[in-house]
Design a protein around this nucleic acid. Sequence first.
DNA 1: ACCCTAACAGTCTAAATAGACTATATGGCG
DNA 2: CGCCATATAGTCTATTTAGACTGTTAGGGT
Lengths: 190, 190
Amino acid sequence: MPRRTLDNPLVPAVLGLLLEQASHPYQMLAELRQRSDSHAAAITRGTLYNTVAALNEAGWVAVQGQQRAGNRPERTVYALTDAGREELVRRLDSEIRNPEREFTRFFGAVTYLGALGPDGAVEALTERAQRLRERTAADEERLASARAAGAPRLFVIEAEYALCLARAETAWIDSVVDDIRTGALTWPTP
Amino acid sequence: MPRRTLDNPLVPAVLGLLLEQASHPYQMLAELRQRSDSHAAAITRGTLYNTVAALNEAGWVAVQGQQRAGNRPERTVYALTDAGREELVRRLDSEIRNPEREFTRFFGAVTYLGALGPDGAVEALTERAQRLRERTAADEERLASARAAGAPRLFVIEAEYALCLARAETAWIDSVVDDIRTGALTWPTP
DNA sequence: ACCCTAACAGTCTAAATAGACTATATGGCG
DNA sequence: CGCCATATAGTCTATTTAGACTGTTAGGGT
């Protein structure tokens, strides 16, 4: 029995999707997964249904009706309410205005980079940079083909952002690897 | 009753701290909070105790003993085991090698930037950039004074990383704001 | 000397999450 | 034509997590 999941990153995502069109949770999930093939990949079914239920209780979304295709389970279609539309804008505004320190696994790992020793660090970092480069190339291609297919830039702006950060991270890693190799970054003798 | 919290970002952090010295959870928390004044700020007491208990069950850490200062609650001091040391290295290595798509609130918000309209977007983004700049300046200062106090660069490497990303984000925001103002990024007419 | 606040150390519970489980339908392949 | 893998939709439970709650002690002000 779900209660109030009103502060999690899925909230704006769901409201945003519903801004475009009414939808049922399963479809939203497919949409989210496919759209940013992977960014939203961490989303689980349970969490999504839970969030939508909480949104419904809060009045940001409302049941628009039930649908049924063949003898499949019934789908409950939700639509954004006016309150939901306002809430979405409030959230987006606040989440953009306030930079939060959300930190990633990589950040946590880098904090104890020392434990890998110079050689281990160079090896691991080099592999990461390599993988990042591959991923970046793939993302660039996807972005380009989306644009070519006529997607307005505004609709793919988050991909540009992600690319920008990925490039910065790659450059940083390269510089650290370099510094270890040249001796500009050394391991303190214990 | 805690069970097995073996995959969360606190795990490497705790093991990393214990690599330096044996400690009790309350102290670890203080250390984490102070060390990266804010990055780790999201950590809650409950979660930490839970994680340490799980680590103990897994055998990565072991109880070193009980301490008591005056009539305060007893503190349970934990130390890293050999298995824990190996695990730490395994984790660090894997978390560095595999770039994961962990995405932030800002990323989620940018995805629906359109909903703010051009003016709202410019305003919100401008404020974020401003705040980022202030924070970056403060972080740079803290980093500089840590170095001046004799901290080896390796020990503050994660601060360099965070700064690098923050600068990239700021630059990206500036460029987007510019593009909106000059008309290089437009809102599709609905 | 006495009071108030902040630091200390930990436990406990309500809410949130991941992911297993249920059940039907479709499409491809042997 | 029957069988298996996958897609559709959703529910349910066991972990996890956030953060409120408990109680003690040191320090500062009056």
